[in-house]
Design a protein around this nucleic acid. Structure first.
Lengths: 341, 341
DNA sequence: ATTTAGCACTCGCTAGCATGGAGTGCTAAC
DNA sequence: GTTAGCACTCCATGCTAGCGAGTGCTAAAT
């Protein structure tokens, strides 16, 4: 375990490096407020910290830079709560003040504001809607062969999909089907829909089994359009960082961000709650010099979506975590209130 | 006007520069197939072409590079039709073979393929739907105050919007309203909808004027969500170009591409048909070293959307134009057939 | 009159070298 | 245990020389 003084020095080094982006030397630290030691003492401690793996030296006779392990210790033990100023708080509060908006739109704005406020790349995953309850099903025939199937949830979310109509089905039959489905399946949570659909159609409607199959497939698909849930904002912010003045590095990262499925993978949730992945801890080579911070927002205590930040390892962890927590809480509150209606 | 030989040489220089990205010297040209002159002769011609403004010299004792005026002449007079190979044609044909897809999805894939095939950034604007005819209107109440308004067009496009319900309106009334609207407004093109809505409600329903106002506003808005029509793919491709190895240049461009409204402005249509904007011809500083090629696709002869490419001024104009034309034609055909159903 | 060979000249690019400065590591003194 | 002092390392910067690609001009060739 690190001594108090080692922690003090490590903290100072990380703080300094986060803001200067330059390797920090012993003299810089010894001059800092709250550090009462000479540069020589600091040098000795730095040497120890390097040996322990918390610091790295780009080359002999350069200052020290935190290693992944160093950042990890900083994030886990040293980080201090960051207070938001009035301007920041104002922006955040405003976001949740809008009343007539689909939850998807709020999520989109969240990504926007998150990126603006932190100056890093923001990724937000829209809420999974399995908990949403069915409000209305509609099938609108377009011609003899095709129709649009529409599902409305009680939160006002609308999903639609083009479907093939079974041969020879009449508009009357479609209407009967829709009425049946609406009367039997109203208020059923979407995740139960599939199962319930099978139950309900066991009776009189059995003879049209194939068309229900089609319906099932459509509903299934319209509820699992995961890719559309990814909102990415401020992808170019990474270029503001001095350590990313190299096109090749930036290119790898931006190419990654262009792929929705990769984003879903990077920011998708195994864990709920705050999660910080620092530099080398990331699997993908392209972002081994980046950190990803994510946290989940929830609906009735159950995590349904994610807000996250991608930035350089040299990131303002304290600030970002504060903002993320604030937004996740806000989204959770908003979703929950929308749900109780 | 340029002499035949000057045109021949200009053509050779542009072709060479497009592929090498290096200033081209007189010897390079004199060695080319089909050019029977010594480097000294070429040098004299180059000197003339520079004086006329078609070429530029990065510095004395460097080769020549086409100026904007040079590219312009090349595009307008020298470009030769480019033939697509089997692999490219296959990809293109496959795109339009899918049957059960919303036109929006086809447009999205178009952007993808366009970028893949050209290795430049692709922008496609989804079709304006003012010509689409109304198939179905639905209002689904969520609670006492809110409802979702849904508009389905005869092409299967679905638009929806959360709306506030007028105080004290009953579900019976809503149903009557929806039935009325559907019976009176079916098959009306969306651009007439607003006007027709006013006509139809003149009679018995007049007393609920405010709620129709609300409806009107909603329909209006849901039909003018222009920003959502922009599909951008391959934004990072610009980084493959040797002249964009500088983060600052790339940053300006990518920041521009992040803004949907700017894209709409850059690729939006004043003109129908092919349009090439080369380098300095562009208004925005960020893309003064880029070229934008756009063409429109249409529905029944009337342009409704755009496909476009953004690349370096040193772009493979011939190839890009061929691919763009092919895709625009394909989209037009697809839309038109979808419309006739 | 046009084309071409020849040659001096220009200019960017690279390698090599000296210099300065920031920072370390070690040692000896406090 | 802490600190002052000092030699040492290594990067960054600036300078210079040499190289090479390419030009522009002139004079000779067609």
């Amino acid at each position: 375990m690190l001594s108090d003084r080692q922690q003090l020095i490590l903290n100072a080094i990380v703080d300094n490096y986060i803001h200067s982006a330059e390797p920090v030397g012993s003299r810089t630290i010894s001059k800092r407020e709250g550090i009462g030691f000479s540069s020589a003492t600091i040098r000795n401690e730095m040497s120890d910290l390097e040996e322990l793996g918390y610091l790295e030296q780009p080359h002999t006779s350069a200052g020290r830079v935190p290693s992944t392990k160093g950042y990890r210790f900083y994030v886990d033990n040293l980080i201090q709560p960051h207070l938001l100023d009035d301007g920041e708080l104002g922006k955040l509060k405003q976001l949740f003040a809008e009343r007539i908006l689909h939850s998807e739109q709020v999520v989109e704005y969240t990504a926007q504001i998150l990126s603006q406020l932190t100056n890093y790349t923001a990724v937000v995953l829209g809420p999974e809607i399995f908990e949403h309850r069915l409000k209305h099903i509609q099938i609108v025939p377009l011609n003899e062969q095709q129709a649009v199937a529409i599902v409305v949830t009680h939160t006002g979310r609308v999903e639609n999909k083009l479907i093939d109509l079974p041969e020879g089905i009449g508009s009357g039959e479609i209407e009967r089907l829709v009425n049946l489905l609406n009367s039997r399946l109203a208020d059923v949570p979407l995740w139960q829909l599939r199962q319930r659909l099978y139950q309900e159609i066991s009776g009189e409607m059995r003879r049209h089994a194939e068309q229900y199959e089609e319906m099932l497939r459509v509903l299934d698909q319209s509820l699992t359009q995961e890719e559309d849930r990814v909102y990415l904002r401020g992808a170019t912010k990474i270029m503001n960082q001095p350590e990313f003045r190299d096109v090749d590095k930036v290119k790898d990262i931006l190419e990654l961000l262009e792929q929705n499925d990769q984003l879903l993978h990077l920011f998708g949730m195994p864990a709920d709650g705050l999660r910080v992945r620092i530099g080398q801890e990331n699997q993908l080579d392209a972002i081994k010099q980046c950190s990803i911070i994510t946290t989940s927002y929830s609906l009735g205590g159950k995590p349904v979506g994610m807000v996250g930040i991608l930035g350089p390892t040299r990131m303002e962890y304290g600030r970002v975590i504060t903002v993320l927590n604030y937004l996740a809480e806000g989204l959770s509150r908003m979703l929950t209130s929308q749900f109780e209606k």
